[in-house]
């Protein structure tokens, strides 16, 4: 009996070891945690305005959900958000105040399947035979299904999204009116979907004009901008369909535009999603998880960047 007791006691000590002496925290970590809390306690009108820019990228762009989730967990304020293409889809959901559980659920294969039916082989054959582009109305209905016909001014966080005017090449930034048609225009792949006719313009995917809308975030008043960029590996592409050609052009154009825009951002996070193609909407949840991993890895650096950017405001609480 005594032996059995001793054995069980030893067992418990191994599985549930006594309290280990915790190593002291690193000084930099203590200081960062403290100054971050000081930043977070600043009134919204007494600190820099924080903006987030979400790139295009099709299914890859669902990584932005993971990025936003980690920012939210870390207590990052988001004062305004600009999105392009998939960035506008994710951004609209976030700015409308949808809980993350709901956004992840929407990103599940079942929901996106409703709008991605045109991307399959039968859809492509139909496109070639009829020589007639698809309509992206499904996307508008999809956005309305979670947005409930909201207009930009009804969103909880100021939001803008970008599309391109097919006749002038202008980058059109939507900041007012109904959200759903603007998001539809922003994610309206050229060569696949017919242009969206809206406000006397023919509009296509914003990814070809403003892939990463850092400037739009600045135009909304952001002083400090975090950019989430989801680029494809276009060097690995195989051209087996019309769609793959179109996506290749979109990816290359996106990468060129992103390179310039990233230089204007204060902080850039790039989830590793290059292996996910533009139209693999069934891989949205996977892209989202990659977004979590990428932002989680960089959250301390992002906090540091914002602390240094706000040092005058933080110091003003001490220099009385």
């Amino acid at each position: 009996m005594k032996t059995l007791f001793c054995l069980l006691a030893a067992a418990c000590a191994v599985v549930f070891p006594p309290r280990a002496c915790a190593a002291p925290a690193k000084q930099d970590d203590v200081a960062r945690e403290f100054l971050w809390q000081q930043f977070r306690e600043l009134p919204a009108d007494a600190r820099p305005r924080v903006g987030v820019a979400l790139s295009g990228g099709g299914a890859k762009g669902f990584a932005h959900v993971g990025v936003l989730q980690i920012l939210s967990d870390a207590g990052f304020p988001v004062d305004c958000l600009a999105g392009t293409s998939m960035g506008s889809v994710v951004g609209s959901m976030y700015c409308a105040g949808l809980p993350f559980e709901k956004i992840w659920e929407i990103g599940g294969a079942a929901s996106f399947a409703k709008v991605s039916g045109d991307y399959n082989a039968v859809g492509m054959l139909e496109l070639v035979l009829s020589q007639k582009l698809f309509s992206s109305e499904k996307m508008e209905s999809f956005v309305n299904s979670y947005m409930g016909g909201k207009t930009f001014d009804q969103l909880k966080i100021p939001f803008s999204c970008s599309a391109m005017d097919l006749k002038t090449g202008e980058n059109i930034v939507f900041r007012e009116g109904p959200v759903a048609i603007a998001v539809r225009a922003s994610m309206n792949i050229p060569g696949l979907f017919s242009p969206v006719q809206y406000r006397q313009r023919y509009l296509v995917d914003g990814g070809v004009a403003d892939f990463l809308p850092v400037q739009s975030a600045r135009d909304m008043g952001a002083d400090w901008v975090l950019a989430s960029v989801t680029l494809g590996d276009y060097s690995a592409a195989k051209f087996h369909s019309i769609l793959s050609y179109v996506m290749q052009v979109m990816d290359i154009r996106g990468a060129i535009l992103a390179e310039a825009a990233m230089k204007k951002a204060d902080f850039v996070v790039e989830p590793h999603v290059s292996d996910i193609s533009f139209v693999e909407l069934n891989r949205c949840p996977q892209a989202g998880e990659r977004g979590v991993l990428a932002m989680n890895e960089n959250i301390a650096s992002a906090e540091e960047s914002l602390i240094f950017f706000s040092i005058n405001e933080i110091a003003s609480q001490y220099n009385k």
Partner: peptide, 21 residues
Amino acid sequence: SSILLACVFAAACAPARAGFL
């Protein structure tokens, strides 16, 4: 199950006869 699991680890340090566990 946790107690059984604990026994596995304990057996590593215990006398050889504990193998019956």
